[in-house]
Simulated assay, not measured.
Amino acid sequence: MAEKRNIFLIGPMGAGKSTIGKQIAQQLAMEFFDSDQEIEKRTGADIAWIFDLEGEEGFRIREEKVINELTEKQGVVLATGGGSVLSKDTRNKLSARGIVVYLETTIEKQMARTQKDKRRPLLQGGNAPRERYEEMAKQRNPLYEEIADIIIKTDEQSAKSMANYIIEQIDQI
């Protein structure tokens, strides 16, 4: 039954939302979207450039609009940006329009998975990435928990086994 419902993946950067989301979509023959990739496709610019030009506030406005449009579709798997939950409107739409899966991970795993990624503007320019991750976790983790239908730790499993587990959990809802 999972393939009949929208599945929205939330969580911090480096949690595996895009990788696991693609696996779920493939297994359920659903359409996959990544909100950050969709913003880049629509603007013709990468996220870092949008942040440089419009700041985080401008980016969040774009993100809110894209997520609103994508969550109106039926039978999609959507990987959201880590900060998308900062918008109450976005949280409400995710909750109302599908099953929300919070992919939880440790700061150590986040750092290992994102350390070489230059496409994450919130990590650029600072000398203390660990503190930045901790700040974001303190602010965002309660918001992820607030709207999650399912919470899954992603640190030890492969993307394929995580996708299988998530599908099983959704089928039980």
Rank of each mutant, 00 (worst) to 15 (best):
Glu38Val: 09
Gly98Asn: 05
Glu38Gly: 10
Lys73Val: 03
Gln74Cys: 08
Val77Arg: 07
Glu40Trp: 07
Thr19Ala: 10
Arg60Phe: 03
Thr106Gln: 11
Asp34Asn: 07
Asp36Ala: 02
Lys17Asp: 13
Val85Ser: 01
Ser35Pro: 01
Leu103Pro: 09
Asp34Glu: 07
Gln37Cys: 06
Thr80Ile: 10
Asp36Ile: 00
Gln74Arg: 13
Ser84Cys: 12
Thr105Pro: 08
Glu108Cys: 15
Lys93Pro: 04
Ser35Val: 00
Asp52Met: 00
Asp34Cys: 01
Val76Ser: 14
Gly83Cys: 15
Ala45Glu: 02
Lys65Glu: 11
Glu64Gly: 13
Tyr102Gln: 11
Ile99Thr: 12
Thr19Arg: 11
Val101Ser: 03
Ile61Asp: 01
Ile47Val: 11
Glu108Met: 15
Asn92Phe: 08
Ile67Ser: 04
Asp34Tyr: 04
Val77Pro: 02
Asp52Ile: 00
Val101Glu: 08
Leu53Gly: 00
Glu64Cys: 15
Ile99Lys: 14
Gly44Gln: 03
Ala96Phe: 12
Gly83Leu: 10
Gly16Arg: 14
Met30Tyr: 00
Lys22Ala: 09
Ile61Lys: 01
Phe33Ala: 04
Gly82Ile: 06
Ile50Trp: 00
Ala48Pro: 07
Val77Ser: 03
Lys41Asp: 08
Glu108Ile: 15
Glu108Val: 15
Leu86Ala: 04
Gly83Trp: 05
Glu63Gly: 02
Ile107Glu: 11
Thr105Ser: 15
Gln74Thr: 13
Met30His: 05
Ala29Lys: 11
Arg42Trp: 06
Lys73Phe: 02
Glu63His: 05
Lys73Ser: 03
Lys88Tyr: 02
Phe33Lys: 03
Leu53Pro: 00
Gln37Ser: 10
Gly55Trp: 05
Gln27Arg: 14
Ile24Leu: 12
Lys65Met: 07
Gly21Glu: 10
Lys93Trp: 04
Tyr102Asn: 09
Gly44Cys: 04
Met30Lys: 07
Ser87Phe: 06
